[in-house]
Design a protein around this nucleic acid. Structure first.
Length: 269
DNA sequence: AGGTCGACCTGGCAGC
DNA sequence: TGCTGCCAGGTCGACC
């Protein structure tokens, strides 16, 4: 599901709609996504007001006027959609807001996590997460250090959120394609030039994907339920057998650490 | 200690 | 129209 560009798009959409909105009531339609006792969750969220909408890695953070935080990790298929629409089959939580508005947490596979915490440190994810790739501390020097001595493939390293936050399977594939670096190459075997290219393309691809409101391959929808436009700019992900945009050779699919990787074996070395 | 592998789930799609 | 098997934007604990 959503990687950094998608979660950032949702964040921006919701920030336009729900700031200062009061949560009138909450309907938990599927208790599995609420990662704390539902009674506790309801007590701590009902009557509160949204003060902001933040993002860290692939998680949405909603500071509340109680100084607590509503945290949502959409995982593979979670959506956070603002509107007036009726619930869907995969709607798991409905936040009823003032003005007859609502926020729908939809999640086909129910891997997502919804909960209220006093501090973000209560959630393990935030404690192990690496730097934000669009912040200044994620520079070439940092990337050199993160690849140094790593035997594992560069693709797996890029997707490891303890090294850098927010990069998932789609963007790892696209970043390496643009960098002309093989996903199978051991991270420690990248040349200085390749590291610089991967760093530059990480920043560029993520920024471009945000500008196009993310990639809707299957389930992803933005904060208004619309698809993202970056899907049309994807060059290798989920394109097995189709011609490489650069050389025309068929895009290959391999499996690395249990995840599909798409690349051009002719262009990426 | 670094790195990989199931488990967690529902549903769409290809093939028979 | 089924059925089966495979696949899917993530994370984490178990295990090598």
């Amino acid at each position: 599901m959503p990687e950094l560009p998608e979660v950032e798009t949702i964040r921006r959409d919701l920030a336009q709609e729900i700031l200062k909105a009061h949560i009138i009531s909450v309907e938990v339609l599927d208790v599995r996504v609420v990662r704390q006792p539902v009674q506790t969750f309801r007590q701590r969220i009902i009557g509160r007001r949204f003060e902001d909408v933040l993002r860290r890695g692939k998680a949405l953070i909603f500071p509340l006027d109680s100084d607590e935080f509503l945290v949502i990790q959409p995982m593979m298929t979670g959506q956070m959609v603002f509107g007036f629409s009726p619930p869907r089959k995969d709607t798991r939580v409905i936040f009823r807001l003032s003005g007859n508005r609502a926020l729908f947490y939809n999640d086909q596979r129910t891997f997502g996590r919804v909960l209220v915490v006093k501090g973000l440190a209560e959630i393990g994810y935030f404690n192990i997460l690496g730097p934000e790739p669009l912040e200044a501390d994620f520079n070439v020097t940092y990337m050199r250090g993160m690849f140094k001595g790593r035997k594992r493939p560069v693709k797996n390293t890029l997707m490891d959120h303890t090294f850098v936050a927010g990069i998932g399977n789609i963007y790892a594939c696209e970043i390496l394609y643009r960098s002309r670096v093989s996903p199978k190459r051991a991270a420690r075997r990248l040349t200085g030039g390749q590291i610089a290219a991967v760093h530059k393309n990480t920043v560029e691809v993520l920024k471009e994907a945000i500008a196009h409101r993310g990639s809707s391959m299957r389930n992803y929808r933005d904060g208004h339920g619309q698809e993202g436009g970056f899907k049309n700019r994807i060059q290798v992900y989920a394109r097995e057998g189709q011609p490489c945009p650069s050389c025309g050779a068929p895009i290959k699919r391999i499996v690395q650490a249990g995840r599909s990787t798409f690349y051009c074996s002719h262009c990426q070395k």
